[in-house]
Design a protein around this nucleic acid. Structure first.
Ligand SMILES: [Mn+2]
Ligand SMILES: [Mn+2]
Ligand SMILES: [Zn+2]
Ligand SMILES: [Zn+2]
Lengths: 135, 135
DNA sequence: TTGCTAATTAGCAACTGTTGAGAATTAAGT
DNA sequence: ACTTAATTCTCAACAGTTGCTAATTAGCAA
């Protein structure tokens, strides 16, 4: 995801308005590696801007996602997680605390057993126990 | 997933009863490679047994899953998909028609960027367009 | 075969995460 | 400042799944 300043330009160029609510979310998301849910972002945003609506949070997240600034990922944990890091990487999910960590694989694994399937994307999810929870 | 006959034994040994509803679901699931949702199974079951409850379908699926006979997989398509094939394999999901295909990878891909994470499971989801939808 | 009892079923309400709709507000170009 | 389309907020609706409970039933034992 680009910086709040760059996003401001991008939004205006697309005909989208830049509101205080959106600016706040730009700030909360930029460089955020915690893969927050909409709920968590709503809680964070509410601290700085009481009265902000959860609907607005969803709306902004959806806007960012459809602009390709954000990925919405469903790990099956009940709610979608949002990732401002749209560079190629994979994830490790802790079964104990639910945290999502960024990981990398050396090379995209080749698959077999399916002819003629045009792969657009491959996503690996590792599940297990993170270092913090192991102790 | 084991055969309906074997599941009958396994259920009784666990103190679970084997009802006509469950036997029907055993049959519908055994060897099924379509990764059906609860809804689809409910529709199939309803043809043979009108009046069967969606609740019962969920209950049986949950029982099978907690016995390890079935995997419940969330591909983010709105509803969980159930897979009676519990051997190690991966999946390819078509963005057009939503079908889920079984695929295999030659070797489990090593991840980097995270120390001390105890990996219990790695699941790869390939997304793209299947051969049928490409034409 | 019959009876007992705990498990199961069906039906429906409740729940969670997310989206739809619409009136009031506001960004931003003129 | 004025205009207007976009946005916000509120609240209802939605989908998938689970909780609850009275009525039914499987499976065991007598
Ligand atoms: Mn990430
Ligand atoms: Mn499969
Ligand atoms: Zn952990
Ligand atoms: Zn397809």
């Amino acid at each position: 995801m680009r910086s709040p300043a760059e996003l401001t330009q991008a939004f205006r160029q697309t005909g989208l308005k830049v509101t205080p609510q959106r600016q706040l979310l730009f700030r909360l998301l930029h460089g955020n590696t915690s893969h927050p849910s909409a709920d968590v972002l709503f809680a964070l945003a509410s601290k700085e801007m009481p009265g902000i609506s959860l609907r607005t949070v969803y709306q902004t997240l959806n806007d960012l996602a459809s602009m390709g600034e954000l990925h919405s990922i469903d790990f099956g944990t009940g709610s979608a997680r949002f990732d401002p890091n749209v560079t190629d990487h994979q994830h490790a999910v802790c079964n104990e605390c639910g945290t999502v960590h960024d990981v990398h694989v050396s090379r995209a694994p080749k698959m077999s057993g399916l002819e003629g399937f045009d792969i657009h994307d491959a996503h690996i999810v590792y599940r297990g126990v993170c270092a913090d929870c192991a102790s």
